[in-house]
Write a protein that binds this DNA or RNA. Structure first.
Length: 283
DNA sequence: ACCAGCTCCTGCTTGC
DNA sequence: TGCAAGCAGGAGCTGG
């Protein structure tokens, strides 16, 4: 599922029920997701106050009063669903137990947060807060696409000399952190760049123009609550809505929507992943 | 160093 | 309707 906008949507959904609240209890129902959980994870979460929830790329970081940070990755199909009774309001977004409820966190305010991940590509780890960003999963990540260090000069330098297709380069989390297949396809379409073009062979003005396009696509997707194709749900269980705004992703054989283009959206495979683009207006 | 391909796992969609 | 193949939003690892 989740690329940056989906993860940010989940983070925003968890913040009001977790931030500043104590973790009353935690249950681990299965010993591992992609990797084994850290030792005694449930016990180490118990009694901690959640100082705040941050996001780095596609990771959610929950800073705890113990001085540790819970790192959460949703993989392809992970969900964080809130249920329970809070402030007199009853949330029933995940009351039925599912076979893939791997971790359940019970907050002192009555909220219950369930980590559900059918494909088990997700991960959790618990590390000291002051070195959380040095975690092996985070240490090699490139800049945040919505941050100031992601700019035209940076991107040109990062892609200089690279012969891999621009599509593959933008999926590389070391180049820019948080993009996935959907938003790379959409951004390249908006920028009019052919996904097969070699990353190091794109003229500066076109690369420069790609930066604000990426920011816009991500910001609009966050605003829409992300994209729900199969698995993504907001923390309250609601769907995201950005999938209705896709111009190319999953639109194979449909007419290109670019004004006056007249082309047809194609699906190709690049390094084993689907790429959707319009050969007419993406050059 | 760079890059394409494979792999982990489960479930939904597609085509025969 | 039934069944199997194909495909899925991530990302680490391997080997050329």
């Amino acid at each position: 599922m989740p690329e940056l906008p989906e993860v940010e949507t989940v983070r925003r959904g968890l913040e009001p029920v977790m931030a500043g609240q104590v973790i009353a209890d935690a249950e681990v129902r299965r010993p591992d997701l992609r990797w084994p959980f850290p030792p005694n994870m449930a016990k180490r979460l118990q009694g901690q106050i959640v100082r705040g929830l941050r996001r780095r790329s596609k990771y959610i970081l929950a800073d705890l009063s113990s001085g540790e940070t819970l790192i959460i990755h949703l993989g392809m199909s992970g969900r964080m669903l809130v249920s329970g009774q809070m402030r007199g309001e009853f949330f029933r977004n995940h009351d039925a137990k599912s076979a893939h409820d791997h971790v359940v966190i019970h907050m002192g305010n009555g909220a219950r947060i369930t980590f559900n991940d059918a494909r088990r590509f997700g991960a959790m780890d618990l590390v000291p807060t002051d070195t959380a960003e040095d975690h092996w999963l985070l240490s090699k990540l490139g800049p945040e696409p919505l941050g100031n260090s992601f700019n035209a000069a940076y991107l040109e330098n990062a892609l200089n000399g690279r012969r891999t297709p621009i599509k593959s380069a933008l999926l590389d989390q070391r180049v820019v952190a948080g993009l996935g297949n959907i938003y790379v396809c959409e951004a390249l379409h908006r920028a009019g760049i052919n996904p097969k073009r070699h990353a190091g062979r794109i003229a500066s003005p076109r690369l420069g123009a790609l930066v604000p396009v990426i920011r816009d696509v991500l910001a609009e997707a966050i605003e829409a609550g992300g994209s729900s194709l199969r698995d993504h749900r907001q923390a309250d269980g609601e769907l995201g809505y950005f999938q209705h705004r896709f111009l190319v992703y999953d639109q194979a054989n449909k007419p290109c929507q670019t004004l006056g283009c007249g082309g047809t959206v194609r699906r190709i495979v690049q390094s084993g992943r689907s790429t959707f683009y319009c050969p007419t207006c993406q050059r």
